[in-house]
Nucleic acid binder design. Sequence first.
RNA 1: GGGAGCGUAGCUCAAUUGGUUAGAGCACCGGACUGUCGAUCCGGAGGUUGCGGGUUCGAUCCCCGUCGCUCUCGCCA
Length: 598
Amino acid sequence: MPVRTNNCGELRDEHVGQTVSLAGWVNSYRDHGGVIFIDLRDREGVTQIVFHPEHAQAHAAADKLRNEDVVWVEGQCVGRESGMANPKLVTGQIEVQATRVEVLNKTQAPPFTPDEAGRVGEEVRLKYRYIDLRRPRMVHILKARHRVTKIMRDYFDEHGFYEVETPFLCKSTPEGARDFLVPSRLQPGEFYALPQSPQLFKQILMAGGIERYVQIVRCFRDEDPRADRQAEFTQLDLEMSFVEAQDVMALIEGLVRRVWSEVLEVEVGDIPRMSYNEAISRFGTDRPDTRFGMELIDLGDIAGKTDFGVFKGALGLASGDGTVKGICVPGGGTMTRKETDGLADWAKGFGAKGLAVTKVAGPDKLETGIAKFLAPVAGELIERMGAKQGDLLCFGADRSKIVHRVLGELRIKMARERDLIEEGQWRWLWVVDFPAVEWNEDQKRWDSLHHPFTAPCSEDMELLETDPAAVRSQAYDIILNGSELGGGSIRIHQSEVQMQVFKLLGIDESAARAKFGFLLDALKHGAPPHGGIALGLDRIMMHLVGTNNIRDVIAFPKTQNGADLMTEAPSLVDDAQLRELHLRLALPPKPAVVVGTG
RNA sequence: GGGAGCGUAGCUCAAUUGGUUAGAGCACCGGACUGUCGAUCCGGAGGUUGCGGGUUCGAUCCCCGUCGCUCUCGCCA
């Protein structure tokens, strides 16, 4: 490999006259028969190379160059005459007159070129990821990701953290997400699980006196992916001893302030806090998008004055948690009957029986939908909801959980569809004061909202036995523009408290010992008070580079079926491999081949 | 596991109500061309319309199944 003196993004007027050598990929070629141009691309940019017939070796070689050939060129950096400069290239003031060329690798015709890849389907991009990664956009993303993790490591180093690696081959604990399992060869019939997070290990590190731990770590959850979720993902994971929630939150504020400042030159101010109850009540979700209004308005008292059966029914629910709330969709009055009927069907997907709507026709006048039921309270309703003529009012009347869910989802849906979110905003939020546990109606038991190691608020401790639903936890989630970037908590550091919580969750002493005995022992052997947080690095990157596709920020992502289209993982393995692991497949029978009926 | 959308040349797309030889641009191959920068011009090659079945005189088009990709509900302590 001959010497490379410069990269393709750095030559400027000041380099004119120098003999330079570049290497990279042929981004495009323009063969005029006499003079030939190629745009040479490497990681750093694009530089135009000119081949004149006088340099016979170079010219002859250039004649055969095609897109994505890998070449090395040597030549003179020359200035371009005015009118011949290319303002689209940062190197457009100069070009390199090639005197020597070496084709480092001749390529097959590529299925697509990095130039046009923005218009290529994702399936093809993933199959030929190495070509996709040559796109300046992808280089930019991977570079940004590198910078972000570098900033994070520097930041935590400055704050006294040690980066410690934790195991990938772990003990399976059936709580939470489905585990990826790894069969053990040495212990027939037994399995490891890949970590869903290093939660317990980082707590043990605290018991081990490490005091401040951080790790940028891969986590695995065998659940169906989404646009912002992948079975294999990366967390910024940390834990600190001798701290309270405020300390962890302040540390993270400092981190995002630095990352956003250095990467985007955006200043992040103090991040406001909102209680879980307020978030649910005003936004119908524990991760509110506060970039726009359209908040949920409580209408219980007004609804009670109407004769509308749906409202009456909700308010009179035996469960006692019946609620009537509404949102006002600005300008939504333009929606057609078909569209609003469609909303009702959509709402059923979230457990609602339907969705009542009406339109504002004047200061105290409603029309269409359930207008006739609301006529007596029209003025009051319109005033309460801050509505004006031409708005659409949507109502949820049901158990409060369903009302909040439906209206919370509707709020987002309407904002997106009607373009009510002003771009370029960074709305940060801490959601705090979560309930520690939530009643699971299906399983008839209490479930942790975060995880079983989250410390309850000390002043709520006595409620653990009398009124579990009222116990708040020392947990905190950080939200950006309605997306959950991460969450953490102060942990339980006393084994008696941990056992009390396990008991509430229906995990008895023997089960607790079997699954978490090592943790209980560690808590008994001098575990300090501690707490931490984990942030989704992939989601942070999605925000920083402006994509809503998590696969864009991962070099080698998987598809919705968990497949890697490039390597074709997962795949069948040899019988010999299975035998070594003491495994035998028990696949479901193949569906019978249906022969045409007719 | 459920719902929705998509699948036609290497890539991005088109193809009338179900109609005769499935087209275009780019890429590829051959040729021309000494200042282009999405070069241009001339010519050429390239198709199991994802796969299997059905309906029909005739299917890219309609029906059933299946595979793949995307979004989504469930799921994600």
